[in-house]
Simulated scan of single mutants.
Amino acid sequence: MFVAEVKNYRHASDQGAQFDEFVAKCYVARSMGYLLGDHFMWITWTPFRAQSWSQLDSSEHVVHSVLQHSARVFGTADRAAAEAQMDLSVAQEVAARIWLIVLSDKQETLVPLKDWEAIVAAELIRKGEQW
């Protein structure tokens, strides 16, 4: 099961801020035992934060995002009070479940040709599997 937020933008816009909010929401969902959150997917057509892209799914970034939205997450804007409530194990769980997916308009048109579908179907049927 997964939760996804989809941003089909032409430009990066304010995706960084929206992503941080999404991550904070994922933290809340995970901390409350949300059962449909095996994976947290951020799907976009425009990359953002290129300089820190490789860190966006880190537990440090999860902590940063949660503290940035601490008033909504913990009910306090006081950083020390929010840090005291932060569960680092939940932040690590969220980080491990984040998927950053970048698509393109061209990928949306990538569908198998009918001839290839027939070949795959025939092979599956030959092996006794369902099509």
Rank of each mutant, 00 (worst) to 15 (best):
V120I: 13
S13V: 00
H64L: 04
W42N: 10
E123H: 10
R126N: 15
V63Y: 07
T109W: 01
V90N: 07
C26G: 15
K127S: 15
L88R: 15
A122L: 11
M41Y: 07
T46F: 03
A84I: 03
V63L: 09
L103H: 06
H39K: 12
T44K: 06
G33K: 07
E108I: 11
D57C: 05
D78K: 00
K25I: 11
P47L: 09
E117D: 08
I101P: 13
S13Y: 01
L124E: 04
E129K: 03
G33P: 07
D115H: 09
V6K: 02
L110F: 01
Q68C: 05
W99E: 13
E83H: 00
K114L: 14
A50K: 06
L124R: 13
Y27R: 14
V94Q: 11
E60V: 13
V63M: 10
D57Y: 00
C26A: 15
R49D: 00
Q130Y: 01
G37L: 12
S89F: 11
A4E: 04
H69F: 08
T46I: 03
I98D: 07
A81Y: 02
Q130P: 09
T44W: 05
L100I: 14
S59F: 05
D87I: 12
R72V: 00
Q107W: 00
E5Q: 05
A12G: 09
I119W: 12
V28W: 07
A29N: 12
F40A: 08
H64W: 09
E129Y: 09
E5R: 06
P47K: 06
G75F: 02
W53C: 13
L100P: 08
R30L: 13
F19N: 07
F2M: 01
F22N: 06
P47M: 09
S52W: 06
D38F: 02
H11W: 08
G16I: 03
A118R: 14
T76S: 06
T46M: 07
G37T: 09
G33M: 04
T46C: 10
Q107H: 03
E117S: 12
A121V: 12
G33V: 04
F19V: 07
V94A: 13
D14H: 00
V3M: 03
G128P: 14
